[in-house]
Simulated scan of single mutants.
Amino acid sequence: MAMKDLLVEDFQDAVGELLVRHKSILDLLSKYQESTARVNRAIVKAVTTCGCIEIDAKKQNIPPDATLSELAELMDTHLKGHLCDDCRDIIEKEMGNNIFYLANICNTLGLNMYDILIKEKEELDTLGYFNMK
């Protein structure tokens, strides 16, 4: 078993052992949704409260003759600046909580996170640019 495989499985097992409350799939789904909202809020606060990053959103300017391989270079993230250490720590914590609840949902449904990652990676490798997510 590869080190990456062990890391994901060890994490998923640890999460399963530590979940005491919110065992119901309904609780897990609502906690996962709440944790996603907290990730979003932490990013918004990096813009509106801290100001370490800015959002400069406008229509994506894609020339009509652009090729599919050029598309990735032409698309803009609309972000300006870089996360400060404090905002990075908060966002990482919220993303960690989000992954915690995702792992619990996987456990409850009998899914293996590592297998899901492998399948997604295989799909990306197979479809490449045609994946278009």
Results as ranks from 00 to 15, higher is better:
residue 117 L to P: 01
residue 30 S to V: 10
residue 39 V to Y: 09
residue 43 I to A: 05
residue 79 L to K: 09
residue 75 M to H: 07
residue 7 L to P: 00
residue 13 D to H: 04
residue 23 K to E: 12
residue 117 L to R: 14
residue 53 I to F: 07
residue 112 N to H: 09
residue 1 M to T: 07
residue 104 N to C: 07
residue 125 D to E: 14
residue 76 D to F: 01
residue 91 I to L: 06
residue 123 E to P: 01
residue 115 D to C: 02
residue 76 D to P: 00
residue 122 E to S: 04
residue 44 V to K: 14
residue 129 Y to N: 11
residue 3 M to S: 09
residue 85 D to A: 12
residue 120 E to R: 15
residue 15 V to F: 04
residue 79 L to Q: 09
residue 2 A to M: 03
residue 118 I to R: 13
residue 108 T to E: 15
residue 88 R to D: 08
residue 109 L to H: 03
residue 71 L to H: 04
residue 106 C to R: 05
residue 70 E to K: 07
residue 92 E to M: 10
residue 12 Q to C: 03
residue 117 L to H: 10
residue 71 L to I: 02
residue 133 K to V: 03
residue 77 T to C: 08
residue 128 G to M: 08
residue 14 A to M: 10
residue 54 E to P: 00
residue 97 N to I: 06
residue 111 L to N: 06
residue 71 L to K: 10
residue 94 E to N: 02
residue 102 L to M: 10
residue 93 K to F: 13
residue 86 D to G: 06
residue 3 M to R: 14
residue 64 P to I: 05
residue 34 E to L: 13
residue 32 Y to A: 05
residue 121 K to P: 01
residue 26 L to G: 00
residue 109 L to A: 04
residue 83 L to E: 07
residue 91 I to D: 09
residue 82 H to C: 02
residue 50 C to F: 07
residue 1 M to K: 11
